[in-house]
Amino acid sequence: MSGPPPQAWLNALLVLIEKCQLGLLWLWHALGLTGTSHGQPAWPWARRIAGETLLIDLALARQVGLSLCALAFAVLAVAFAIAWRRGRPMLLAAAMLALLLAPWPQASLLLGPASPTSFHASPTRFAVDAIALGQRVYTQHCAACHGHDGRGEGPLAGSLPQWPPTLASPLLARRADGELFWHVLSGMQDRRGQQTMPAFRGELRDREAWAVIDYMKALSAANSADGNWPVPLRLPEMAIRCGDASPVALSHWRGEQRVRLVAVDGSAASLPYEDPRFVTVLVTPDGRAPAQVPRFRAGCTATSTQAWQAMAAIAGLPPAQLAGTQLLSDRAGWLRARGTPGSAWSDADLVCVSGPAAATRAMPAGIDGLTALLLRMDAEPVRFVKGGFIH
């Protein structure tokens, strides 16, 4: 009998480490031992456990996992020893032996640099308005160095002491949002103290800094080299109106139903049919619902005028060429596939693959491409942790 795949136990370890550090941060803040930074509790230490290091060093991750198991065993043994007097010497000896035999990792390998905002959560919820704002900020302040496509080949890149990193890589996803936010406002320096990225603290408000991070995520997906997004993306948040009902947030369906976004030009002939396997949401250039929706056609529409621009940014298309493009999410709200106009769904449309064995997974014979795609999405959930992820 084989054990769980590496993705499962490693993801569980990363989640545990993140929750423990967040719990410690909130405890420190509740006790008044740390203040706030940009409206959220500030991480008070210069180091943190680096989940991104554990992601690429499985041997170190196993050391951490085994050491945590030994620590948990020791705590339980001490608890039982307190309650059971006769077995106390044996239990205390077992606890000490477990701690002595644990493969404790070196602190220099386990810990990485931290900033006061390392564990900050973005308040934007990856909303379409934030993506559109981030695109304007990026064009004005970032494209000259990072390039309009995010590949680090802007017109000023060659004049910098260090070439800007490409955003179309897993590098962006392996940095916590809070640390990206800190670097946008405070800049970056190399090991010699030489500035490699200017600080924008005096030029950008907090809202603009968070928004440009959202746009960088969309840009990373849009310009991925092999079609598999290096950064897992949530469905962008937007208000949805279905018929005459009051608008609801798109996240209303998260955890319950898949969602399909379809860019339409507004004519009734271009409206897709409803499909009970997912909620279909129309995205139009002006945020208005079609004047007439024929029977059995999708009638839920994104009301934001920024939804078209944000969807184009994620799809990597000029807004004028977006019509007919589709984005499909799983039940957890992760965008998983991108459909092109006039083409049937197939495995080639997957943009978020969550395991090396995905390509060889067998599917039942005789089913259509869309059904096979949905089954594969359900069977291969996205596992994601800030500062380190399995994708």
Rank of each mutant, 00 (worst) to 15 (best):
G3N: 12
P4W: 12
A8M: 12
N11V: 04
L13R: 08
L14E: 06
W28L: 15
T34N: 09
G35D: 03
S37Q: 11
A42V: 03
W43Q: 08
W45A: 14
W45G: 07
I49Q: 10
A50C: 13
G51R: 01
T53F: 08
T53Q: 10
L55I: 00
D57M: 04
L60P: 11
R62F: 11
R62W: 14
Q63E: 15
V64S: 02
G65E: 13
S67H: 10
S67M: 11
A72N: 09
F73R: 04
A74S: 15
L76K: 00
A81C: 00
I82H: 04
W84V: 11
M96R: 10
A102R: 05
P103I: 07
P103E: 07
A107S: 15
G112S: 02
G112Y: 05
A114D: 04
A114L: 01
A127Q: 02
V128Y: 03
D129R: 04
I131R: 01
L133K: 00
Q140W: 02
C142S: 05
A144V: 10
C145S: 08
H146M: 05
R151L: 13
G152N: 06
G152S: 03
S159M: 11
L160K: 06
Q162W: 09
Q162A: 14
A168F: 07
L171H: 13
L171V: 08
D177M: 00
F181V: 07
W182P: 07
W182L: 03
V184I: 15
Q189I: 00
Q189N: 10
D190W: 01
R191K: 09
G193Q: 04
G193T: 02
Q194D: 11
Q195D: 08
T196K: 04
P198Y: 06
G202R: 13
E203N: 01
L219E: 02
A221V: 14
A221F: 08
D226F: 01
G227P: 03
G227W: 07
P230L: 02
V231M: 08
G243Q: 07
S246F: 11
S246P: 05
R254C: 14
V259S: 07
A269R: 13
A269H: 09
Y273W: 14
R277G: 13
V281G: 09
G287P: 02
Q292R: 12
V293Y: 06
T301Q: 07
W308E: 06
Q309A: 15
A310V: 06
L317N: 01
P318W: 05
L322S: 06
L322Q: 08
Q326K: 12
Q326L: 10
S329H: 07
R336V: 11
R336I: 07
A337Y: 05
G339S: 04
T340E: 15
S343P: 01
A348R: 14
L350G: 05
V351E: 14
V351L: 15
A358K: 06
A362C: 00
A362H: 13
M363K: 08
D368G: 12
L374V: 09
A379Y: 06
V382R: 05
R383H: 15
R383F: 14
F384V: 10
I390V: 14
